[in-house]
Design a protein around this nucleic acid. Sequence first.
DNA 1: TTGTATGCGTTATCAG
DNA 2: CTGATAACGCATACAA
Lengths: 337, 337
Amino acid sequence: MTTMLEVAKRAGVSKATVSRVLSGNGYVSQETKDRVFQAIEESGYRPNLLARNLATKRTQTLGLVVTNTLYHGVYFSELLFHAARMTEEKGRQLILADGKHSADEEREAIQYLLDMRCDAIIIYPRFLSVDEMDEIIEKQEQPIMVLNRRLRKNSSQCVWSDHKASCQDAVSQLIEMGHRDIAFITGSLDSPTGIERLSGYRAALAQHQIPLRDELLVEGKWTPESGAAGVTTLLARKAQFTALVASNDDMAIGALKQLHDSGIATPGEVSVVGFDDVAIAPYIVPSLSSVRIPVTEMIKETISRLIFMLDGGEFSYQQAFPGELILRDSVIANVRA
Amino acid sequence: MTTMLEVAKRAGVSKATVSRVLSGNGYVSQETKDRVFQAIEESGYRPNLLARNLATKRTQTLGLVVTNTLYHGVYFSELLFHAARMTEEKGRQLILADGKHSADEEREAIQYLLDMRCDAIIIYPRFLSVDEMDEIIEKQEQPIMVLNRRLRKNSSQCVWSDHKASCQDAVSQLIEMGHRDIAFITGSLDSPTGIERLSGYRAALAQHQIPLRDELLVEGKWTPESGAAGVTTLLARKAQFTALVASNDDMAIGALKQLHDSGIATPGEVSVVGFDDVAIAPYIVPSLSSVRIPVTEMIKETISRLIFMLDGGEFSYQQAFPGELILRDSVIANVRA
DNA sequence: TTGTATGCGTTATCAG
DNA sequence: CTGATAACGCATACAA
């Protein structure tokens, strides 16, 4: 690899001058500029970003930690797409680190990004607790934002959606449409999101004085497979229900498939609702109703805050993003009937 | 940030010694080791990977370039999942760079990874031609592998699947099942994969002496939306067909939705086949037949080769991965009827 | 077993 | 406008 020194020699100037023409800092005459550019051209010189970043103490990169258990789902590609897009828009590069499948590995991934000297870090936690995250944030001097968790202490360094409230709201809407027997497939119950959605379901029933029936409750694991298995379990229990709420779209898709295979029509006999409103969901037949989580907006806010913090800014206010139930055929048709 | 020097001082040794205990290279007594570790603990020292990588001239990272137009699809998350998994397995980190949506930007992304001194690079090209890639590979000293393209010169530095052959094969199978009127939704025709699949369709028809009917051919753009639009176009043309082949699963999913909305049953009136066999596809109702592309194996081979090349190895043989038609309800039910 | 000195490829601070 | 030269934080060959 040809270095800056070789370019300098070839152009008959010093390293410093080459550095100047490349960075645009400091004055340098047009003719030497030309000589330097020519030397660069001839030698095929490329800057070594490791060296540059070491010297400037800035890398122009944002790090993102996500558990690979999320990689399987559709939600992930959308999350990543928007994160990459926003990052580039701010003139930075996104670096992804795999949080794998444990709190320790999540911690390691964060540490890796810090060791790589990312300017700032975004964490989409799956296993770390909010207290652990608070601790990490306080120990580190780099700006850190947490997605999808409400932190206790550094409450302005996170952006979240109130999963309990939006689930409660969605289930309430179903109830107000006349549904009384609403089955529920949870997410993994070691995940805060999973727990919050479940408690939203419980709260909605309580709010309308509908007793919770255990036979209508089944535990899933976020995957389409577990959604399908949930339906199998419900049917084996001979549970009667007119609506089914799955804690995310992937499970809802799996559940729809299983309902269909079991000869149960949707829409018609069972209304199905999911969460996240992944872009491909509306193309599932029959159309899936879903609680839309505004990922785009959340990512945007997250990255804006990080950039602002990098410029020395501070935030004093918190921000939550409400989920919104999008009704599609699977529910609407049922209501009409 | 506390540096190695401070740790050294605190432990009463030199930087070199600290470096030794950290890297495990060279002898160092147990007691000084202990002192160093304690100093590290106390000071919360963390190595600066920029400095380390600059000094060692190795970063232990593999770079991956993918266009963000792929981010939207399901295929992408699976690709990335396996890439990240394999990379970690080899004790490296994966760095993702966005190829955005043009050849220039794809080139920039590659350049960025090179400037970051990734040890090796994987390119999943979308806009760059094979000749351009060959040129890049020859100019660079880092090992580079190309996914999903058959290179002309550096033919052992790529791993591909013969899209034409597998499409021809899939369509032939439909023909042998008795189908004569087979509609086809292409991918973007500025993409080699799209072109290859189309020519496979053509070849299959020719092989069975079935004339190509233009009304059965419609151009898509890889997205579910374009798949749905394709069906709309076909129906508007009042084209008659018993089978529909979409050039990827996302479009097939969109097409299925549109067929359903138009009151056309699948399976039954129309058999639908997609490509890629993304994991979520079987959960679509009705089950979607698909030509499975062995991404996992392809990624695995790609990364194995890169690691081998990093160790100075050389490959002399090429490797193609065959696609395989997986028949599911949407086709099978039709055949039974 | 440990310390010294030099290099990795840049940037940045001074003089000139 | 340009050139030395000192960081940046770490690894490593060479001495001791």
